[in-house]
Amino acid sequence: MNKLLNISQRNAVLLTMASLLEKEKNALLSANETDMDSYSGDDIAMRDRLKVDDAKIEGMILSLQQLASLDDPLGVERFNFTHENGIHVSNKTAPFGTVLIIYESRPDVTIEAAGIAFKSGNKILLKGGKESINSNLVLVELWHKALQDNGVQNDWVTYLQFDRNQTQQFLEKPTQKVDLIVPRGGERLIAFVKQHATCPVIVSGRGNNFIYIDAEADLQMALDIIINGKTTKISACNALDKVLIDSNLVRKQQFLQHLIQELQKSNVEILADNALSSLEGTAAIADENVWYEEFLDYKIVIGQTVDLEEAISNINTYGGGHSACIVTNNSEHAEQFMNNVDSAAVYHNASTRFTDGGQFGLGGELAISTDKLHQRGPIGLQHLVTNKWYVKGNGQIR
């Protein structure tokens, strides 16, 4: 059991880490350049996630500063009850203990996820991908310096430099106590962790996000939201992959032609279902399984639905349970959509790109969960806790 650090100690470490990131920025950029030069894969989403630049470092620093300014998530009373015999019962938030984060490519996870885990009183085991090893080792060295500068032991943040076999062995027979595992990455990583883990796993799932353009949609708004969702960051799990158009949309053909022209400006490959595949600039869907795919690429599918109910059914059938949006001026349609679509985040007239702990006011995120237990959507500081019952009496027996 970890001896709990008080909130002043935890905040001091986070602020020291923010200062060290600013001070050692060039060392991190140099290490990341080595990682980028070594990456020989053709996965453009992986490459985008791997890259660290000034803007990403500023984001890391801001995340740490925001975390330090937030209230302590521990010891928050969720329930209290006084028994008729005088026993006082309360329930308060408590840390999990030790959290293992397994992730691919993204050095910023070494800051944001570790910061959230640490502020919520947990020890962190970090298992990053081999493609980001140089960047991650610099960041972990800074974590250890931040801990040491505040009189805290290094073992609050540990980097596991394991290959795949060693990782599998650790998952099956951990050499130390692990209370929770969070995999952040593609479906193969998630399946690997779920297959071998012997403790609870929170799945930071895939996107495959949908937008439905209702018959009563504002067409310019719809266009802006689609372009933003698809083209601004194709490596993000909150990016847009599927567009459903209501068959009764006014000026539907004109809208679709405009949409295709705008997508082509960003070199987006456009696939279309049978109802829309005659549109110039699109290719017909070859296989229904494409509806299940998360692309993480400049690729999108457009399809037609007869009404709102069919759109909801399609999203619940094919979507990843991450984010879904309706564009409409009809508030009743919006409410029906948001109540019945089975996704962690549902939107009315806004881009799915906002599904993010920082954008939701959480001060960052450990992951975005598509599980329903114990937390769904962005997992922030206040969610990376379990609970404990406190029972106080003066000799009562049952």
Rank of each mutant, 00 (worst) to 15 (best):
Ala284Ile: 10
Ala197Ser: 14
Gln166Ala: 15
Glu58Phe: 15
Leu50Pro: 05
Ile326Gly: 07
Leu381Asp: 07
Asp35Lys: 01
Asp71Trp: 06
His88Phe: 15
Val385Gly: 09
Ile61Asp: 09
Val193Thr: 05
Gln264Ser: 15
Met338Glu: 03
His374Thr: 07
Ala236Gln: 08
Leu70Lys: 13
Ala286Gly: 15
Tyr292Gly: 06
Gln304Asn: 11
Ile368Gly: 05
Asn154His: 14
Lys145Ala: 14
Trp156His: 10
Asn11Cys: 12
Gly321Arg: 10
His333Arg: 08
Glu24Tyr: 12
Met60Ile: 06
Gly364Pro: 02
Pro107Cys: 03
Tyr318Asp: 12
Asn150Met: 05
Gln261Met: 07
Lys392Met: 13
Asp155Glu: 13
Leu29Ser: 04
Val152Met: 02
Ala68Pro: 09
Asn274Trp: 03
Asp71Lys: 13
Tyr347Asp: 05
His88Ala: 15
Thr167Lys: 04
Leu160Met: 08
Phe354Tyr: 13
Lys392Gln: 12
Gly151Lys: 03
Glu335Asp: 11
Glu309Thr: 12
Ser235Val: 08
Leu279Pro: 12
Ala45Met: 10
Asp287Gln: 05
Arg78Met: 13
Tyr390Phe: 00
Gly380Trp: 08
Gly363Glu: 01
Tyr298Thr: 12
Tyr103Met: 05
Lys3Met: 13
Leu147Cys: 01
Lys230Phe: 01
Asn122Pro: 09
Asn11Lys: 15
Glu77Cys: 07
Ile368Lys: 06
Ala45Gln: 07
Gly363Lys: 03
Asn329Thr: 08
Leu14Thr: 11
Asn329Gly: 06
Pro378Asp: 03
Phe354Pro: 04
Asp42His: 01
Arg251Tyr: 14
Thr198Glu: 13
